[in-house]
Structures are given as structure tokens and as C-alpha cells.
């Protein structure tokens, strides 16, 4: 059975869709009240974020658009030193989308929400003309309770730059699906509560956290360096990339350092906290591959010391990398 325009009319057909697909999977007092808005009671500074998800294909090795929609917003809250609590979700369905696929996606969202310890407190669906596509917007709310503030302007020369695991897998997985290349690369999409809370709950001097999504490691470090007014110096040989992912990048002419991840983050920590931070990260399943890749220094921009002993800047590309042959 497929989504039709009538499913978006707001009448009985809409109610039945919402009931069968969503209500059973997201049981909580907020949604069950069926009010126009959820009423939340929280004190103190709150982190509040939104993101939209338009990825194709909808299902890919390692996850789907639903898991991505939950993890993406949960991770944005975690990166502020916040404890993710409440999410909303808006769905734009194109007619022609299989309801069975929508149910799979909703199930995946429920699972991801449970992993992340968040409740879906408000939702909406709309139906538009189209060819079976799906777009999801989520927003997230959570109190900031880290011992020290975690902000993009707090990096200092001398700080250690850590990364939570091998880079490039999510975008490599998607590109492989689109270009028909067979491999075992899986998207790393995951909520990062485990490793992030482990770092913050220890009270370690974590200055910055950022997940390396669109634009990859390169974009994250350039932004943090610019906002903090210092430079980042990296060792190419220390940056982890799985061999299969590196090989995929060579096939398509892509750069793993600018490719999106959905379950990896950069942590900039005080020098004296680096060893302990790494130990903590390595004990969490999602960050078992964590390592140190460089150091913040005086100056500006991001510099890469290359494997052959060379040196060059690592700048944000103007455009997203496309597969190339030259």
C-alpha cells in the first residue's frame, strides 16, 4: 500500500495513518495527550536545535533516514554538553511512498530514540505530490549539565585534538550505493550518548565537541579553529580511515577528510586530559577506534603534516566532492 495525497488531508485517513505508523511506536505521556503542543517543564540553560534529513536512498547499510533523523539531532545536543531529552519530528511524505517502508523507518526511529534516551513529544505529517520520497525534520531540546562549558570558542594552543574513530564511512557508504560499488562499508550513524557522556560525566577539561557531519573533519576543524582564534596542526598518518573506505575514495576520487560522518566527533581537550580522555573513549563501543590526530597551536587555519614529510593547508572545499575521473 502506498501513500496517497488523501493521507495528508487531516481527516480520518490521516488519523489512521498516524495511529498505525506512529502512535504505537512512540508511547509517552506527551504524545498520548494529543494536544496541539507538548508542555515541557525544564529549568536552567537549554540546548535547542533542529535539522532536516533528505538523504537517498532511504535505506542503506548501517541505517536509514529515520535513524539518521534521531541521531543527528541527539548528537547536536550532546556536542553542547547537553543531555538530550525531547525531540519533535515533522514528516513530508511524497505520494507513492510505500507505507511498509514508512513503518520500518518509524520502527528504526523508535529504536534510536530508546538508545538515546529521548522521547518524541510532538510530530506532524504532510503529503505532497511526488515519486515516493520522504523528508524528515527533527528538533531537539535538552538541559546543559556539563561541569565545564563546551563551546566552539574555547580551544587553546596546546590542546589535544582527538577523533572518536575512523572517518568517512557514512558518505562512503552512500556513494557506494549510488555508484553501484559493492563493499562492506556501513554508515556509522549512531547516537553518541555513550562516549560523550562518559567524557563529560568524568568532569574532564573538554573544551570543544563537534560531530563531523557534512563537510567532514576538515570543515569541523576549520570552524573550531576560526571561532577559537587559533590553528589546528594535524598528522596525516594519525588520522584513522578504514582501508575499505580509503580504497572507495581512491576509486571515486574523493577525500575522506571532507566526507560526512554520522557517528563520529572531534573532541578538543586540555593537553593534560588527553590520555585519560582517550582511555575513556576507547572503552565505549562507538568510540573504540578513538585516537589523537593533532594539536591546537597559535596561528590560523588547519595544517596537515603529510606522510611523505610534506606540509600543506587543509581548507574547506567550496563544493561537495563529486566522483571524478581526472
Amino acid at each position: 500500500m502506498l501513500i496517497q495525497l488523501s493521507h495528508g488531508g487531516g481527516g480520518g485517513a490521516t488519523a489512521q495513518l498516524v495511529q498505525s505508523v506512529f502512535a504505537g511506536r512512540f508511547k509517552n505521556p506527551y504524545l498520548q495527550r494529543m494536544e496541539d503542543s507538548a508542555v515541557i517543564d525544564l529549568n536552567g540553560p537549554l540546548a535547542y536545535t533542529t535539522d532536516s534529513f533528505v538523504i537517498t536512498p532511504l535505506f542503506f547499510p548501517g541505517g536509514d533516514i529515520g535513524r539518521l533523523a534521531i541521531a543527528g539531532t541527539v548528537n547536536d545536543l550532546l556536542m553542547m554538553g547537553a543531555r538530550p531529552r525531547f525531540l519533535t519530528a515533522g514528516f513530508i511524505l511524497e505520494e507513492g511512498l510505500a507505507i511498509a517502508d514508512l513503518e520500518r523507518i518509524a520502527e528504526s526511529m523508535a529504536q534510536a530514540a530508546a538508545e538515546a534516551g529521548v522521547e518524541l513529544v510532538a510530530a506532524d505529517t504532510k503529503v505532497v505530490e511526488g515519486k515516493g520520497g520522504l523528508y524528515i525534520n527533527t528538533s531537539g531540546l535538552g538541559p546543559i549539565d556539563s561541569l565545564h562549558p563546551v563551546r566552539a570558542n574555547l580551544a587553546q594552543p596546546g590542546d589535544a585534538i582527538l577523533v572518536s574513530g575512523p572517518l568517512g564511512d557514512h558518505q562512503a557508504c552512500i556513494m557506494s550505493q549510488r555508484m553501484g560499488i559493492q563493499n562492506g562499508i556501513q554508515s556509522d550513524v549512531a547516537p553518541l550518548n555513550g562516549p560523550v557522556r562518559a567524557l563529560l560525566d568524568q568532569g574532564l577539561a573538554v573544551h570543544c565537541l563537534r560531530d563531523a557531519t557534512r563537510g567532514g573533519l576538515t570543515t569541523v576543524l576549520n570552524e573550531l579553529a576560526a571561532t577559537s582564534g587559533c590553528a589546528a596542526e594535524l598528522e596525516e598518518a594519525a588520522i584513522p580511515v578504514r582501508p575499505e573506505t580509503r580504497a572507495l575514495c581512491e576509486v571515486l576520487g574523493l577525500d575522506p577528510l571532507t566526507m560526512a560522518n554520522e557517528g563520529k566527533f572531534v573532541a578538543i581537550v586540555a593537553a593534560e586530559a588527553a590520555d585519560q580522555a582517550l582511555d575513556i573513549l576507547k572503552q565505549c563501543p562507538q568510540s573504540a577506534g578513538a585516537c589523537r590526530i593533532g594539536t591546537m597551536t597559535a596561528g590560523s587555519g588547519v595544517i596537515l603534516n603529510t606522510r611523505i614529510g610534506g606540509r600543506r593547508r587543509l581548507n574547506i572545499p567550496w563544493y561537495e566532492g563529486l566522483p571524478r575521473i581526472c
Binding site: D255, N305, T306, R307, I308, G309, R312, C326
Partner: peptide, 16 residues
Amino acid sequence: CGTHTSAIAASGLRAL
């Protein structure tokens, strides 16, 4: 060769 130009830039070879 443009691919050599890219490889030279990406490897930071000019510094050597």
C-alpha cells in the same frame, strides 16, 4: 597532468 597537480598539492610536496 592535472592528477599529478592534485597529488603534488595534496601531499604537501612543495614544502620539500
